[in-house]
């Protein structure tokens, strides 16, 4: 029986909260007091981290590649922006509505992604984002078109904390939302539902053969991911008091993919760490070479991917060497 207990404990072990995680989140608050002048940059990082986290849920855990995740970010940003413009400036209400609107679009479009290869999924997600971009562009009377949304009035968070010029409230607010949604995502990926997602991603044929309805799991995670991306967009709208067509732009979908790949796919901290690296690098490089910073980001990305690729290759070579050494004939 003690054997059984330990098996049970071992199953739970990987979901255990580690002290390094506490340290990470404590540090994320402390940086504000060490570098108070960087608060706006930090809040940008928190929002990018949340956006990348939402992409990781579908890419890293669900195995759905997307080049159009900005669709949900943008929809969330416009939802929160429009509310603030029309007198509904409560930030949390804005987040809730943004999440719902983005979730609806995510749910509707998820059915287009159930079948098909990675390539079709890339094209479908890209296409949907392009359509939404064009739609926002055409509906200039509502969205402000290329000029952006004018006259947003965002109220204080919880009716208590007004947004200040230095971005202190913005950062703590974004960080708190990131933290809560991180905890939720963490809970989900370690749950049985999360395990079933891994199964669907790993072998969809077998997943079906043990009674998993792959479609319903993918629809669920895609909808959730869209909602979280929508919240990230809403945070961006509320903290910068600015929404323009840029929130739906293709580069945003590409950036978030870059961020996730830099930080690591299939690991919830990957998106956040990628966001830290990407945004700091962007900030720093833009200071030195304002025109060429993307070159350096590109270089870093290529190096990262090649190093990762190499490691896989050596691992593979050592395994094949072992196998052929044992089996004699190769």
């Amino acid at each position: 029986m003690s054997m059984t207990a330990s098996t049970h404990d071992m199953m739970l072990e990987q979901a255990r909260w580690r002290w390094s995680e506490s340290l990470f989140w404590i540090l994320s608050v402390l940086v504000l007091f060490v570098f108070p002048s960087k608060a706006l940059l930090f809040s940008q990082i928190a929002i990018m981290g949340l956006f990348a986290l939402s992409l990781d849920l579908i890419l890293g855990y669900g195995g759905i590649v997307s080049l159009g995740h900005a669709a949900f970010f943008g929809v969330g940003a416009y939802a929160a922006g429009l509310m603030a413009k029309h007198g509904l400036g409560d930030p949390l209400l804005g987040l809730a509505v943004a999440a719902c609107v983005a979730a609806c679009i995510g749910w509707l479009t998820s059915f287009l992604l159930l079948r098909g290869s990675d390539l079709t999924r890339l094209m479908v997600t890209l296409g949907i984002a392009l359509m939404l971009f064009e739609l926002a562009n055409r509906m200039a009377s509502i969205t402000g078109g290329a000029d952006g949304l004018q006259g947003m009035m965002v109220g204080p968070v919880l009716g208590l904390f007004s947004f200040d010029l230095f971005g202190k409230t913005a950062y703590l607010y974004s960080l708190a939302v990131l933290f809560v949604l991180f905890l939720l995502s963490r809970k989900i990926v370690h749950s049985t539902f999360g395990l079933s997602l891994r199964a669907v991603k790993g072998n969809i044929l077998r997943a079906g053969a043990i009674g998993i309805s792959a479609s319903s799991r993918l629809v669920a995670i895609y909808t959730l991911s869209a909602a979280i991306a929508g919240i990230a967009g809403a945070l961006s709208a509320q903290t910068t008091q600015l929404v323009s067509l840029d929130v739906l732009d293709f580069h945003r979908s590409a950036d978030v993919m870059l961020v996730l790949v830099i930080g690591g796919v299939g690991w919830l901290y990957g998106g956040i760490i990628g966001a830290i690296m990407f945004t700091l690098m962007q900030d720093w490089l833009a200071g030195i070479t304002p025109q060429y910073w993307e070159f350096w980001i590109g270089l870093v990305l290529v190096c990262l991917v090649l190093v990762g690729h190499d490691r896989i290759k050596t691992g593979f070579q050592s395994i094949t060497a072992r196998v052929s050494g044992k089996g004699g004939a190769a």
Partner: peptide
């Protein structure tokens, strides 16, 4: 299998 609240194996 849809339980998203409890840790797998709990």
């Amino acid at each position: 299998g849809r339980d998203w609240w409890h840790v797998a194996g709990s």
